[in-house]
Amino acid sequence: MSDTTIKLSDAAIRRQMLADFWFYFRQNRGAVVGMWVFIGLVILAVFAQVIAPHDPTQQYRDALLAPPFWQEGGSTSFLLGTDAVGRDMLSRLIYGAQYSLFIGIVVVAIALIGGIFVGLLAGFFGGWVDTVIMRVMDVILAFPSLLLALVLVAVLGPGLTNAMIAIAIVYQPHFARLTRAAVMGEKEREYVTAARVAGASTMRLMFKTILPNCLAPLIVQATLSFSSAVLDSAALGFLGMGAQPPSSEWGTMLAEAREFILRAWWVVTLPGLAILISVLAINLMGDGLRDALDPKLKRS
């Protein structure tokens, strides 16, 4: 009898937590809008091959710099016009969503895993381990992130992969600091002592007992880093250090379009708008997540 009660309540607690979370998240209308836009972006990225009307690298030599369809000279076969070598803007923008989401996911994953690991070590062991790790993090944080990423890319060589690695290295100290702070707060609590007395190994204490209770601030930071990663990788692309042409990464598209700013507004305006909308959507979601996950702000 008592066994089944425990099993039931475990699942019930999880369901209740999820319901609570959704209740608070839904209160923030902006967050819900941001979530739908983000889901839309994911769908665009996943089904880009089906949705995009043209191949993103196909050059239509008879339609260079064609304006969007509602302008004079535009045609419905290129809804948002074409760029300087006759590639369809709409298709390139849709494929660009793949880059941005991919970059965001990879950067956050590397920074998050690295940061959690390093932060756990520092917070759990304290002493000289902590001092050394946190000093190294301080050094990374002393550099403006874009500058350090730029120099790292200069060392590693320009390109998408290296840009992602560089950005992840630059973001990782934020996660390490958050994890460390949360671990230091948690490790003196009774449930940790109880687990330790019960004979839990160090690894188990670190990853199974303490870590799950430190996740809330990390999730919020992960969303913020996701949007910054999209911005920074676009900036690197714009400076010629990120994804290389002819890839349809939005920042790289902007860099190629710079010389046409006064002649063809669409090649400049649209990629930037795409960056802004996705970053804004993710930030809106991040605000909602923070409200829903931060117990200090909950009014219950």
């Binding site: 949007s227 911005l231 676009a234 714009f238 902007l254 930037g272 802004l276 970053v279 804004l280």
Partner: peptide
């Protein structure tokens, strides 16, 4: 806050 300033 979300603005790509190079585009702006």
């Amino acid at each position: 806050f979300s603005m790509p300033i190079f585009w702006w």
